[in-house]
Structures are given as structure tokens and as C-alpha cells.
Amino acid sequence: MSLVLLVPGGSGQLGRELAALDGVDVVAPGSAELDITSAGSVIEAVAGTVEHAAGRRVVVVNAAAHTAVDKAETEQARAFAINADGPRVLAAVCSSRGVPLVHISTDYVFPGDATAPYEVDAAPGPRSIYGLTKLAGEDAVLGSGADAWVVRTSWVYGAWGKNFVKTMARLEGSRDTLSVVDDQLGSPTWTFDLAAGLVELATRIAQGQGPAARVLHATGAGEVTWAGFARAVFEELGADPDRVKSCGTEDYPTPARRPAYSVLSNRTWADAGLTPLRPWREALADAFSRHAAEFRG
């Protein structure tokens, strides 16, 4: 079955990765073209994509989000509008048109006090405004009556947009040493692998074979601290990883609290027969082999 994806948030790093995939028909409007908080804008975008599809199945993959975690602490109204109200509007329109929806969420919906990977049904407990707004978006989508799935991911990086890998690559060229938090654990996820997984999921949904589980986790396999992640970036740059020094969360205060442990279990993804994402370190090496210039800036 042929498939067309409508990707709100098309100018972000995940949206651009989806649009760049070979063999996939993707309509990927940025926020300037599609305001997901506007019912009229969403209705027009969904109707236009259905018309463009010309009989093919349409699936919406919502990559639109307010992702500035620290800014969300002082931009609460804006964060709630984009991360909670927007998905509610999108889900309502998708429900009315019979269009399936895949909504992207985050590890930040969890409190970060676990010692084993979070399963999809673990109790949420966000510690930041960003996490609160993303959890509200999940609830809005799952309670909308739409044919919808939530996919949580974590520590996303890619060739487009701002992300941790690009920041580390930039700082490697300007500092002799760099202190990075070494007491927060997570799973880095390359946008290319995540995008491929989302297309596989959307294809299954379009074929009427969507997973029974409505919440899924899709991250790079394995876990690492931010400092360990930074050292791996230095290795890919051909730099001495020992230039990355460890520090604690208390040494790097931020407006928003980060989870100390935000590793997600990918069990439901695998149980659904979906292809597991690669180990994070293998993916990082491949990302640099394809996009070294972009990561170096």
C-alpha cells in the first residue's frame, strides 16, 4: 500500500530527516506553514494532504514541539500551547477525517528516579514544564478517540537543527577541556534511525496492522551518560576523549530539572514486530560517516 506522511514540525531535526528519506512521500510543513494550535490551519493541512495522496493512505506523524527545555520554564503558556493544545487539535482533526496519528513524545515524562529502563506503562512524573506539557500532549492524543499512537524517544540528535552532538563538536574546536555532566543516564537516538522506525510503524498502521500497544518507546539501544556521549563525539572527531572532564548535575545548574535516569525500555517496540533501533554508539559512528561536515558546522 502506498503511503503519504504529513509531518507537522517539518523544519525541525526529525521532520527534516523524515522528509529526506528516500522512497517516502512526505509533506513536511514547518511551523510558519502549519500552526498546530490553529484548528483551521490543521484542517486545511490534513485535507490538502489527503487530496495530494490521491487515494493513498495518509498517516500524520507529529514532530512539532516546543523543545527548548529551559526556556519552557519561563515560556509556560507557549510550551503548553504547542506541546499540549496543539496535539489536542491535531488529534481532533485526525479523528474527524479518519486519519491515523503518530505523536512523538519524550523520556522527560518520567521522574528519572528509576534504576532499570522505563516500561511504557511506568508511572509518569515529569520534573520540568517541558515534561509536563509533553505528558499533557500524550493524554490529549490518547484520549481523543483518534486512531493514535504515542512514540517516546530520547536524547535525539541529527544533521539538522541544534543538538548535543553539534554543540560538543563546536566546543571541541574552541576549548582545551570541557566539563560535562556524568551522573545523568540516557539513550542517544539518531534521527535517521528514528525516522526509519517511524516510517515502518506508519506503514504498518496504513496497512491496518498497527500495534495493539498505543504507547511505544523507540530509542538507540544501550545507555550512556552525557559525559560518555561527549567522549564518543570527541572520538568521532579524532580528538582526545580525555579532554572531556566529568562533573555532577549540581555543578551545572539549569532552569529545568533533568531526569537522572531516563533510559526507556524498547520492549513493546520489539514485541510489536518493529525493527529495533541500533546501539547508540554504532549509530553515532554511522552518523559521522555520513554527516561529518554538518556536525562540525
Rank of each mutant, 00 (worst) to 15 (best):
S174M: 06
M168A: 15
L101C: 03
W155R: 00
V199Y: 13
D182G: 14
S105A: 12
V109W: 07
V165R: 01
I104F: 10
G186R: 09
A123I: 07
D139S: 15
T191L: 02
T106F: 01
E119R: 15
Q184T: 15
T219G: 11
H217I: 07
D121S: 10
V180A: 08
A227G: 12
A212G: 13
A122F: 03
P124M: 06
E200W: 05
E119P: 08
E223V: 11
R152A: 10
G238H: 07
L198N: 10
F164Y: 09
P100R: 05
A213I: 05
D182N: 14
S187G: 05
A221H: 05
G197W: 00
W160S: 14
S187L: 01
T153W: 01
F229M: 12
G220E: 02
I104P: 12
Y157I: 10
V141G: 08
T167I: 13
D176R: 02
G131P: 00
V165P: 06
A212F: 05
A159M: 11
R175D: 02
S174V: 08
E235D: 14
G145D: 08
G143C: 02
A159Q: 14
A196W: 07
G228W: 07
L142M: 08
A232H: 09
V156N: 05
N163P: 02
Q207D: 15
R127H: 14
A212P: 04
R175Y: 13
Q209L: 13
K162H: 14
I129F: 08
R231C: 03
L101M: 02
F110Y: 11
Q209F: 05
G112I: 04
R170P: 13
G222K: 08
T191K: 01
P188I: 00
Q207H: 11
E236H: 04
G173T: 04
A148W: 03
G228K: 09
G125L: 04
Y130I: 00
D147W: 06
A196E: 15
S105D: 10
R175C: 10
L201M: 07
A239Y: 04
V181E: 00
W149S: 07
L178D: 01
I205R: 01
Y130R: 00
L194I: 07
G143A: 03
S154E: 05
V165A: 12
R175F: 11
R127T: 15
D176I: 01
R204G: 11
G131N: 00
W160Q: 13
R214L: 03
D139G: 11
H103W: 07
Q207E: 15
F234R: 11
E236T: 06
P111E: 08
P211C: 08
E235G: 11
P111V: 01
A159S: 14
R231M: 00
G220N: 01
V165W: 02
T189W: 06
T191C: 09
V141D: 06
G197Y: 00
K134W: 12
L132Y: 05
V233C: 10
Q184A: 14
A122N: 05
V165M: 04
S96K: 04
A230G: 10
P117R: 00
